[in-house]
């Protein structure tokens, strides 16, 4: 009996200590003592941000699940009845828009410092970092003189079978590229003719990582991909170059969002705010070569500033609402050309 009382007292003491240690009480409500983060971000980046967060909020224990966007969405759908995660961080935006029902709208307190147009009207997602889409080439296989300068240059006969591009139905970044071309060449038969011509030139790969790995390793001279992946190889000293096509390119962010019915909603909000705080965005730029969504943070060293890159108006709503039809037509184009 005395033993049980001892336990109860002990538990009470622990609970009190935890309550004291729980740290600052935000405007949104009292943060819980833990938060579960699902992320498709680089494991090293996850560790750096989590360590900084736990230092700033010592009462909140962060546990992470790092996986691809597809795996994260599958996991969330399976857990729908009783969500186990609180917040997704740095996953493909299209996936969030597509599965809106799984998420809770939220407007971060940092939103005022973002570049314009980085917060959706329905507030379902919050941007994390942003990136342009590029043509990546291997300098050992492509000379400066012959390197393509525009998307359409990839149609040149000399690149037949040498353009690496991931299947848009399997890769979020490839889908953004597809919509980019449709936005430039027309969301009609003309645009699709361009896509088909491009597919005839391409090796269609099942994973976007195979595009930039392949180009960096010299398996393919040219790859169509996103800047940040290519930039990592550039920084690492791989013989590659980046081209911002003259027709313009999409510059879109990856996203974070709160999970609906999450077990720790308040801690989740704190975490989400933290990822877009000035100090974390500085860290992303300096250490991870990512581009910030904040106006008060510069570009990574070695990359042109965002306003020097010709951007197209990437219509996220068009991309999200017409996805099924676009991918179906893409599949048909694939069947026709491969």
């Amino acid at each position: 009996m005395g033993r049980i009382r001892g336990w109860v007292l002990g538990m009470c003491l622990v609970a009190c200590l935890l309550a004291v240690a729980a740290g600052p009480v935000g405007a949104q409500g009292k943060p819980e003592d833990s938060v579960v983060v699902y992320s498709a971000f680089d494991a090293h980046g996850v560790n750096a941000v989590v360590a900084a967060f736990e230092k700033k909020y010592p009462g909140i224990k962060v546990s992470t699940v790092v996986a691809g966007t597809g795996e994260i969405i599958k996991r969330m759908e399976a857990e729908k009845e009783r969500p186990l995660g609180d917040v997704v961080w740095s996953i493909g935006l299209d996936a969030i828009v597509d599965k809106k029902g799984l998420f809770e709208p939220y407007l971060t307190k940092e939103a005022g410092s973002f570049f314009p147009g980085q917060v959706p009207a329905d507030r379902v997602w919050t941007p994390f970092t942003t990136m342009p889409y590029v043509i990546m080439y291997n300098k050992k296989l492509v000379s400066e003189a012959e390197k393509p300068k525009a998307w359409k240059d990839a149609l040149d006969a000399k690149w037949k079978g040498k353009v690496a591009y991931a299947d848009a139905s399997k890769s979020g970044s490839s889908y953004i590229l597809l919509v980019t071309w449709l936005s430039i060449y027309g969301k009609n038969d003309a645009g699709w003719k361009f896509v088909e011509d491009l597919l005839r030139q391409s090796k269609v790969l099942p994973k976007s990582s195979m595009t930039y790995q392949g180009v960096a390793n010299g398996e393919y001279p040219i790859g169509l991909t996103f800047e940040q992946a290519a930039f990592e190889y550039l920084k690492g000293g791989a013989p590659i170059g980046l081209i911002y096509p003259s027709e313009g390119t999409a510059i879109t962010p990856d996203g974070s969002a709160l999970i609906r019915n999450a077990p720790h909603p308040n801690a989740a909000k704190l975490f989400l705010d933290f990822t877009v705080s000035k100090e974390m965005q500085d860290l992303m730029v300096d250490r991870f070569g990512r581009r910030s969504v904040r106006k008060d943070v510069g570009s990574p060293a070695g990359l042109p500033a965002l306003d020097q890159i010709k951007a197209i108006n990437y219509d996220l709503d068009y991309a999200a609402t017409n996805r099924t039809q676009i991918l179906k037509r893409f599949q048909d184009a694939l069947i026709k050309t491969q």
Partner: peptide, 24 residues
Amino acid sequence: SILLYSGPWATMSVAIFTEVFSNH
């Protein structure tokens, strides 16, 4: 494993996957 692990229970295969995935 990639779907079932949580928090501190990541296995080596999961760690390999995330490392390959982030190009390390």
